[in-house]
Structures are given as structure tokens and as C-alpha cells.
């Protein structure tokens, strides 16, 4: 346990070593946030409510989603770390180390996520809340559930990225699967438009998939519109995806390792 805690700290420090990158990322996220906020304000000039989201919910969505963008790594440099090591063969060294590759990568990713949460998500959200009128829940309980949901979103996002990286064992080049995953990630997580905007049952279908568990789920809890009408359902779904993806990643790693050994490493 101590070991994984230390690995998480290293993951954190790896990002805190580049403050200029953080400021640049913050700038870009805020710029996108402003654009999206003005677009949604224009949308809500025509209507009062879409799929349970009023204008203040929608603007809250903008600033939470832009903040979580880096925390759950909708896209970012952390996408390729392992894939590049698989391609170069360095992963053989990783597998010889006396620690679990999946757990140690997860620990480092959690450290990365904490850094992004403190230095990107929270400042961005506070700024958005100051500039725009957004929904601010007044029950402490909802804030707590929101925090739990964010904590669960991190292993879900890790699970998706880990499997994506492992595709390199078979394809060597990671660019194809990356693009495919990027497309799914962007639209099905709720990053581009809130899933509540989707017509009819597409909305519910999208919220059941793992992508929604890493971004839309915490936001839905925050604005009081969780799937199934209660936060417990949304959180259970998140736990389910985190566990399922972890187990699938484990099986994929075992199969990939076997293949690596056959090729002679």
C-alpha cells in the first residue's frame, strides 16, 4: 500500500514539475469554456429547459466538464505512456519489476488526477462560478456525493485508457485505436454537449455506457439530475464500470504479456 501511495506521489510530481504547462492548459480550457458558455447562453435564449437542465445547470456543466477534462484525461499526453513503452519494448522491463503493472500505472494516474484536480479543475470552476451565474447546490450531502462521483470517475477513465494502451501489444501503432477512442470519449462522455441534450432514449443509452461514468455522472449528480433519479444508482453504475474495466484490463494484460513472451520480448 505504502508503495502505491509513493507511486501516486511520483505521478503527482511528474505533472507539478511543469507549471508552465499547467498554466497553458488552464488558459486553453478556460477559453473553450467561455466559447461553450456563450454558445449555451444563445441556446437558452430560445428555450428554458432541455432534458432537465436549465440555463444555470448548463453553465455549471460547462465549467465542471472543462475542469474534469484534464482530471479524467478525456485526452492528453497520459494517453500514450504505456503504448509507447509497448512499441519500444521497454514494457518488458516494466513486467520484470516486482510490482503489478496495472496497479502501479493506476497509482501514478491517480496522482496525476489529483494534481489536475487541484491546479486545473478547481481554479477553473471557481472562475466560471464568479463570471457566470451557475447552479450552486445548497445541501452538503450533494457536494459529498459529487466528490465521491469524481473520485470514481478517475478509475473508470483509467480503465478505458489502460485497455487502449494495451492495444499496442497487437497493433504496435497506437494512433488508430487512439482516434477511435477519442471520438467515443468526446461525444459519449458528455464533453461536447450535455448528454441531456440527446433526443429520446439516446440520452439514457449514452448515460449507461462507461464513458458517461467518467464525466456526465458527476455533473448530473451536481445539478440534481442523476440517472434513475437518484445518486445511488449513478454511483453504483460508476463502481460497476470501474471494476468491470479493471478486470477486463487485467485479462487483456495477461494475454498481451503471453504474446510478448512468445515473441521473445
Amino acid at each position: 500500500m505504502r508503495l502505491y501511495f509513493e507511486l501516486a506521489r511520483r505521478g503527482y510530481r511528474r505533472y507539478s514539475a511543469y507549471p508552465a504547462a499547467t498554466v497553458a492548459g488552464l488558459f486553453t480550457n478556460i477559453f473553450f469554456g467561455l466559447l461553450l458558455a456563450y454558445i449555451l447562453l444563445a441556446v437558452y435564449a430560445e428555450t428554458d429547459e432541455i432534458g432537465g437542465y436549465d440555463v444555470r445547470d448548463a453553465i455549471a456543466y460547462v465549467w465542471i466538464s472543462q475542469g474534469l477534462f484534464s482530471v479524467v484525461a478525456i485526452f492528453g499526453p497520459s494517453w500514450f505512456d504505456l503504448a509507447i513503452r509497448v512499441r519500444s519494448g521497454d514494457v518488458a522491463t516494466d513486467l520484470q519489476r516486482p510490482l503489478d503493472l496495472q496497479l502501479s500505472t493506476l497509482a501514478q494516474d491517480v496522482g496525476r488526477a489529483w494534481y489536475q484536480l487541484f491546479f486545473r479543475a478547481i481554479p477553473q470552476f471557481v472562475l466560471g462560478a464568479i463570471i457566470f451565474e451557475i447552479t450552486i447546490p445548497n445541501e452538503a450531502g450533494r457536494w459529498l456525493l459529487f466528490a465521491v462521483s469524481i473520485a470514481l470517475a478517475i478509475p473508470v477513465s483509467f480503465g478505458i485508457r489502460f485497455m487502449l494502451n494495451l492495444c499496442s501489444f497487437w497493433l504496435l501503432d497506437h494512433r488508430g485505436p487512439t482516434l477511435l477512442a477519442l471520438a467515443l470519449n468526446n461525444v459519449l462522455s458528455g464533453m461536447i454537449v450535455p448528454l441531456a441534450f440527446f433526443p429520446g432514449s439516446l440520452d439514457t443509452l449514452a448515460r449507461l455506457l462507461p464513458f458517461a461514468s467518467m464525466l456526465q455522472a458527476p455533473i448530473d449528480i451536481y445539478v440534481g439530475e442523476p440517472i434513475g433519479g437518484n445518486a445511488a444508482t449513478a454511483l453504483t453504475l460508476q463502481v460497476g464500470w470501474a471494476v468491470a474495466l479493471y478486470l477486463m484490463g487485467r485479462m487483456m494484460l495477461a494475454a498481451g504479456t503471453r504474446k510478448l513472451v512468445l515473441q521473445g520480448g
Binding site: 428555450t47 497493433l171 504496435l172 497506437h174 494512433r175 488508430g176 482516434l179 477512442a181 461536447i192 441534450f197
Partner: peptide, 29 residues
């Protein structure tokens, strides 16, 4: 890398399609 390249083509097609989904979804509402 033919498999990866085909996936890239599909990915690009999907990504750009999704790009327009945002606008389409807005005008649904």
C-alpha cells in the same frame, strides 16, 4: 501499419461526424 491506418480512417470519419453532432443536437432542441 494497415490495421492501425484503417482504424485511423474510421476514427477520423467518426470524429469529424461527431463534431457536427454538437450542432445537430443543439438544433434538435
Amino acid at each position: 501499419y494497415p490495421v492501425s491506418f484503417s482504424l485511423q480512417l474510421v476514427g477520423t470519419a467518426l470524429l469529424t461526424l461527431i463534431d457536427f453532432v454538437a450542432i445537430a443536437v443543439i438544433f434538435v432542441n
